[in-house]
């Protein structure tokens, strides 16, 4: 089904699947949806998350240490889809676990699990031939990242290859929270609009209601990652879902 941002701005919630454990990730995702997250990005933990800052690195390390596998994340996606038929569901992974499973098998399994889209952190449009073909076969949305450093020719190609939404990286750097929405972000979103009519979601460093409001001025959705993962890290597992629910609700208070 198409990814839809019912709110303005929409909220995309990133969770590292399996941190602290898969059952808790499920509970957190459900509460996040019920409190206003339009799209859940289910992160597949990876041993070498080189685009991520310390918060998501640690979450990834914990989830890998618990033995969380891509197949577990697909099963979790299926549970979420069954429980919340209308929410947006995106699988977020580094490439290697997908390569290990097989691109064709992965895309079919993602479809079967009920995912709407896929984002592969280290997949650029030039290398995406097989990936795009499989995504098309399975009627899934390939979501690509656009960076402040991407020249117009790349933004064009990214816009043309993406479906669902385009993920605009707010600043040059790795994931992690910061005080203000980066000044790179509005300009990048404006440049992207020249090449795509898809919704544009802004991520990296978005962590509070003020940021969400600021993003709403120029983009369609805000992506909350490290701030959520850090909250889960510091909260006892049994209290994590409730804390995340309140946090998501609070993001709309600005």
């Amino acid at each position: 089904m198409p990814i839809e941002f019912k709110h303005k701005p929409g909220i995309v919630a990133y969770l590292t699947a399996g941190d602290p454990d898969l059952a808790t990730t499920r509970d957190i995702a459900l509460v996040a949806i019920d409190n206003g997250a339009d799209v859940i990005e289910l992160g597949v933990p990876f041993s070498d998350p080189l685009a991520d800052g310390p918060v998501i690195q640690r979450a990834s390390e914990r989830a890998v240490a618990r033995g969380t596998r891509l197949s577990d994340v697909l099963a979790l996606a299926k549970e979420l889809r069954a429980a919340r038929p209308a929410c947006g569901l995106v699988l977020f992974s580094y490439l290697n676990p997908v390569v290990r499973m097989g691109m064709r098998q992965f895309c079919a399994a993602a479809k079967e699990a009920g995912a709407d889209g896929v984002l592969l952190t280290d997949m650029i449009v030039e290398e995406a031939g097989e990936y795009l073909a499989e995504m098309k076969t399975n009627d899934l949305a390939p979501i690509f990242l656009a960076a402040p450093t991407s020249p117009d020719a790349r933004l064009k190609a990214i816009g043309a290859a993406s479906k669902g939404f385009v993920y605009a990286i707010s600043r040059v750097g790795i994931t992690g929270t910061q005080d203000k929405v980066a000044s790179d972000a509005p300009q990048l979103v404006a440049r992207l609009r020249e090449f795509t009519s898809l919704p544009i979601a802004v991520g990296f460093g978005i962590s509070n209601a003020e940021h969400v409001k600021a993003v709403g001025e120029f983009a369609d959705a805000a992506i909350i990652g490290s701030a959520l993962v850090a909250l889960i890290e510091k909260t006892a597992p049994e209290a994590a879902a409730k804390a995340v629910g309140e946090f998501i609700k609070g993001l709309r208070a600005g």
Binding site: L50, A51, L95, T121, D122, M123, I124, V125, E126, E127, A128, G129, L132, F144, L145, A146, A147, P148, T149, S150, P151, R154, A157, I158, A160, A161, I169, V172, G173
Partner: peptide, 26 residues
């Protein structure tokens, strides 16, 4: 994307290529 793909260099048989975060591409 297909047009861009035709220009990709840096392959050794099936191996090599570019698999990086978009920020590094420029």
């Amino acid at each position: 994307p297909v047009e861009v793909a035709a220009e990709v260099k840096g392959r050794f048989g099936a191996y090599g290529g570019r698999y990086v975060p978009e920020t590094l591409m420029a």
